[in-house]
């Protein structure tokens, strides 16, 4: 048989996905599903039992991620994914808490929570799916929309400078900062795995196409965006975060930029306020 299209074999990730909710809402050509797949693959390959994970999402297209994953997950109010994740982490420090959300949710409405979680070195993994626009609400200009890019509210081009998210995370004190695109799926999976294995605030920005609300207004189909990700990106690990602005004309720099160790919030808090409870914590994780 040439092509087993009517396969009875289940997809390898079906144990991690709520299959009753598939097909998901993401449009044809949307990169969020690819980022989600990379994230699930990293969770699967880490070998850690699934009940040791929790996923938190905010509002937006990528915020639906928490609804599709078949582990403990939380779909929270707009911009407040990181505070909910902080709560989970402080109550159950043994869990690996992953925040899977979009740029509008994490960096615009929830920008203050992002910088303060980074400052406190909260031990969570933040995966920020950056599609350069507010996709779910109709393609309005976002804090990450590139200079001169068109959106439904800036029809002649965006007059403002976008956020440089790795610089923001680095300046606020994040201990792991990386940026990939959804096309660099293997590097992205490795980055998520590194973030799962380490302690501290990990911020991974993932560029992802939005063909319907961003690409349509800027004359690029999803495969054109992927071609840009392929040809106009430079992998430069350890680059200084100040040179990481998203400008595809001069090339977007990808890689791991920061990876340092610093005591995490829950460790320091526990040591200072509940020194007697340290052994009890050991018992809970075992």
């Amino acid at each position: 048989m040439k092509n087993s299209s009517t396969t009875a074999t289940p997809h390898p990730l079906e144990d991690l996905v709520r299959m009753d909710r598939i097909p998901h809402i993401w449009c044809s050509g949307c990169g969020t599903g690819s980022v989600f797949t990379s994230c699930l693959t990293a969770i699967k390959q880490s070998g850690i039992p699934y009940n040791q994970f929790a996923m938190v999402s905010g509002i937006g297209c990528s915020g639906r991620g928490a609804g599709y994953i078949n582990i403990d997950s939380f779909h929270t109010t707009h911009g407040r994914a990181i505070p909910f994740a902080t709560g989970i982490k402080m109550a159950r420090p043994d869990l690996k808490v992953i925040v899977f959300s979009g740029d509008g949710d994490l960096c615009a409405i929830g920008g203050n929570h992002l910088i303060h979680a980074a400052r406190r070195n909260m031990d969570i993994i933040v995966i920020c799916v950056n599609n350069l626009t507010y996709g779910m609400t109709g393609g309005q200009v976002a804090a990450t929309t590139p200079f001169k890019a068109k959106s439904s509210t800036t029809t002649l081009g965006n007059p403002d400078t976008p956020f440089n998210l790795p610089l923001l995370a680095y300046a606020a004190g994040a201990t792991y900062v990386a940026r990939w695109t959804m096309l660099h799926a293997r590097d992205l999976t490795d980055a998520v795995q590194t973030a799962i294995a380490r302690k501290g605030f990990s911020f991974i920005e993932v560029l992802s196409p939005c063909p319907v609300n961003f690409g349509r207004r800027n004359r690029e189909k999803s495969l054109d965006t992927l071609r840009k990700y392929h040809e106009n990106t430079i992998v430069k690990n350890g680059a200084h975060p100040s040179e990481l602005d998203v400008d595809f004309n001069k090339g977007v720099i990808l890689g791991t930029f920061v990876n340092v160790d610093r005591p995490t919030c829950d460790e320091v808090y526990r040591k200072m306020y509940w020194p007697a409870e340290e052994p009890k914590e050991q018992r809970k994780t075992g």
Binding site: H11, H24, G33, T37, R186
Partner: peptide
């Protein structure tokens, strides 16, 4: 790679 890139688990 197709498995990793496919947004639809398809």
């Amino acid at each position: 790679y197709c498995e990793l890139l496919c947004p639809e688990f398809a």
